[in-house]
């Protein structure tokens, strides 16, 4: 697909001279290139709406750039951006308009569509189908979580953030983050067992069968 170019940021007051770099946000082009996929992925999984995710991703970088002077580097840039994205997503989901339209919007994410992206690895056709069902099941279960549970779960398992980092992003105490995470996991576990699909796949990739999430983070 041909990619159009969209002017996103104001040109009048933007000054990117190398001698003026004071915050990482000043080199906005690099920041967008580096973090856009991550911010978009998080917003897409949170909102389940690609149009809203796209809009809020742009808004995230716009706000970050506007408020770049307030970035004191007490956390990583990624954490700061995700924090902005999370706040935008919260504001977005609070509106009644979102609650209504998310049921009917054409850009809503289809669970089956996501499940189709399960990597095949070396699985048999049957195992691949089971894997797709599992992903669809988790996607739907996550959708049913409370906003905070979902945010914490996605930050932990999609963005692979550590608990203190999640606390920083959400502004919640560590204990509260853990509490939300464990509740979310308990719900997912219950649903997982209830669906009768807790069968361990036969031809799991070795890395998953032996090390769980450990190597997956390293490989990303």
């Amino acid at each position: 697909m041909a990619q159009e170019e969209v002017q996103m940021f104001p040109t009048t007051s933007l000054s990117l001279g190398s001698e003026e770099l004071e915050t990482p946000l000043d080199d906005l082009e690099s920041v967008v290139a580096l973090y856009q996929p991550r911010v978009f992925r998080f917003l897409l999984a949170t909102l389940r709406d690609r149009d809203a995710a796209e809009t809020l991703t742009q808004e995230t970088f716009l706000r970050a750039w506007s408020a770049r002077a307030s970035f004191r580097e007490d956390c990583s840039l990624a954490t700061w951006l995700i924090r902005i994205a999370l706040n935008l997503a919260r504001d977005h989901t609070r509106t009644g308009r979102f609650r209504f339209w998310k049921r009917v919007t054409a850009s809503a994410v289809d669970v089956a569509e996501v499940a189709a992206f399960v990597p095949a690895h070396d699985r048999s056709a049957e195992d691949h189908l089971i894997a797709q069902q599992q992903v669809a099941e988790i996607w739907q279960t996550v959708n049913g979580l409370s906003d905070r549970q979902r945010s914490v779960f996605l930050l932990r398992f999609l963005e692979e953030m550590e608990i203190p980092e999640i606390a920083s992003v959400t502004g919640l105490p560590l204990g509260t983050v853990k509490s939300h995470l464990y509740r979310a996991l308990a719900i997912i576990r219950t649903q997982h067992n209830r669906s009768g699909q807790s069968t361990t796949l036969h031809n799991l990739p070795e890395r998953n069968a032996t090390t769980g999430y450990a190597t997956s983070k390293e490989t990303r």
Binding site: Q134, I138, V142
Partner: peptide, 19 residues
């Protein structure tokens, strides 16, 4: 192990879909 696998699949599929 089963839950870990399911969550890993969820992350991989979500990642690929978002990409």
């Amino acid at each position: 192990a089963s839950l870990r696998e399911a969550i890993t699949l969820f992350r991989e599929a979500s990642d690929a879909y978002a990409e």
